[in-house]
């Protein structure tokens, strides 16, 4: 390379002055919506290249339905006329709880690979990575909800209380998914490897989805367990969906307070989880990406 003090000095000077004076990045930076759209596009491409990424919202919940509806179902007594109809909202809530899994895994893998550094070196909003992940998480889980609805219709689950209540139940489910995404961002940012993410999520979220009214009624549980299960955010969500869809009569009078007012409690839980976890999640992410 030539030394800067040759007679080509003037040429170089003119060339570079134009270069620095007129950067090609002279367009308006894209809005947040466009940034998020590109992040989601990227994740959807990943899913298309690796369809097996979808097993957690297709084969896995269907397998749970089959296992519980046909293997354990016969021996579980519920207040619904049909265990299958009773079971389905539970599995939907579980599927949505696992949205945190998806977000945590994806975010952690990105952090591991250094592509986050690439994004951070771009003139884009810092939030777009997280929002993109979250939107994708919701899309991913919604595929699961769709698959579950179809499976449910096949095995005898129905929406019996009309359109508005039916939609409200789905909205509660989405709201819960939104709260769980923050859990995913927190875990994905805090853990040092995808294996650690899997280990932690499997030993926490997984049992939490069982210690509830998802697969078996809480009434039959030991008193302490029953109280815990009935205060579990998943229980109020599941009870709300069951009532809104007309799958069960209202909860018995001796059930804990949340189950007496499941819709309100479910909203409150989602808001509370978001309010507590979101700041922690953002802090963990910022800490992970600055040093």
């Amino acid at each position: 390379m030539s030394q800067p003090t040759t007679d080509t000095d003037t040429d170089i000077d003119t060339a570079t002055r134009t270069a620095v004076a007129a950067p090609a990045v002279d367009h308006r930076p894209p809005g947040l919506a466009r940034q998020v759209q590109m992040m989601v596009w990227r994740n959807l491409k990943h899913t298309r290249r690796q369809p097996e990424m979808l097993t957690d919202v297709t084969i896995q919940p269907v397998m749970f339905v089959v296992l519980f509806a046909f293997v354990f179902g016969g021996s579980i007594q519920t207040d619904s006329s049909s265990y299958r109809e009773w079971l389905l909202p539970g599995i939907m809530a579980q599927t949505m709880a696992f949205a945190s899994f998806i977000v945590a895994n994806g975010l952690n893998m990105d952090l591991e690979k250094g592509i986050i550094d690439r994004f951070r070196s771009l003139p884009i909003s810092r939030g777009s990575v997280l929002i993109g992940r979250s939107v994708y998480g919701i899309i991913h889980s919604s595929i699961g909800i769709f698959v579950m609805s179809i499976t449910g219709l096949v095995i005898g689950w129905r929406i019996r209380n009309g359109f508005v209540d039916g939609v409200l139940a789905f909205l509660l489910l989405l709201l819960f998914g939104f709260a769980m995404i923050w859990v995913g961002i927190l875990v994905g940012s805090a853990m040092r490897s995808p294996e650690a993410v899997n280990g932690l999520m499997f030993t926490t979220i997984f049992p939490v989805t069982f210690l509830a009214n998802t697969f078996a009624p809480t009434e039959a549980m030991a008193p302490v367990l029953r109280t815990i299960a009935e205060w579990n955010p998943i229980s109020s969500l599941v009870q709300a969906m069951r009532e809104l869809w007309g799958n069960v009569p209202p909860a018995p009078a001796d059930a804990a307070l949340p189950l007496q007012h499941p819709v309100v409690t479910s909203i409150a839980w989602s808001v509370l989880i978001t309010a507590v976890i979101a700041p922690l999640a953002v802090r963990a992410y910022v800490r992970r990406t600055t040093d």
Binding site: V25, H27, R28, P29, P30, R34, Q35, M38, W41, R42, K45, H46, R49, Q50, K113, G114, I115, D117, R118, F119, L122, P123, I124
Partner: peptide
């Protein structure tokens, strides 16, 4: 560390970053 997205094609990688720059 190479900071390309391994699951995207070369062209898609360029598209991703180009679009994020607002081109």
């Amino acid at each position: 560390a190479a900071t390309v997205d391994e699951m995207l094609t070369g062209r898609e990688n360029l598209r991703l970053i180009g679009s994020l720059y607002g081109l």
